[in-house]
Amino acid sequence: MSAPDERNAAAYASWSDDDWDNTWDAAEPPPRSRKPRGLLSRLAFLVLAIGLLAGGSLTGLAFYSVDQTIDAFSGTSDEDLTRFVSAGEVSAQLEHDLTAQPAPASVGAAGARYLASIQENLSSAWQSPAAIRDMVKRRVLAPGLGGSEDTLADHFSRIEVISPTRLAIDLTDSETNSVVIGLCLGFVTAPLPLWQVDHLAWQTPQPHC
């Protein structure tokens, strides 16, 4: 991660794992771990990455190969995976946004003072992991702020922000509670976030409801 400025870099560096209040189940691989990937994970990741880079044509195969409940994952398509890529872009945008921008000249002197007052009100957030996490999450879920038109929350039960530039997404269909695939992805900033995925793990499929 490249922090936007020294202030944020210092703040991020001071955060511990506890700050992030990671609530993932103990049975699941910790999203921040850097264990060597198993053969299956490496193979699946390769298929996934190729599929994404090839316009998503192979991603369905990747899903199907690990779980036959793909049909329960209605609404999920190649587009959903494309959104994961955009998460890195969202984080990159957030890094940019967290860096105080000068007020446009067109807003005038009073406008500059007004904007400074808003920035002052925001400043405490830069030091808060919880606030950063909320911002990243909101942007991944927000059509206007860089996320998808159809919200990830409509499909997935848990999306955790591991750090300002890394997300972990549990691909459990929230409607059916069917785990199609448990996939923890750590994203880093654009342009090629998937090249730097830290961890990939398959989750045991659960029975249909």
Partner: peptide, 22 residues
Amino acid sequence: FPALAAALPDPAWEQLASNGLA
């Protein structure tokens, strides 16, 4: 906007205000 930014910190509020003023 200042109140909303203080309550729900996100640089988007500042951007909305700044871009809106421009």
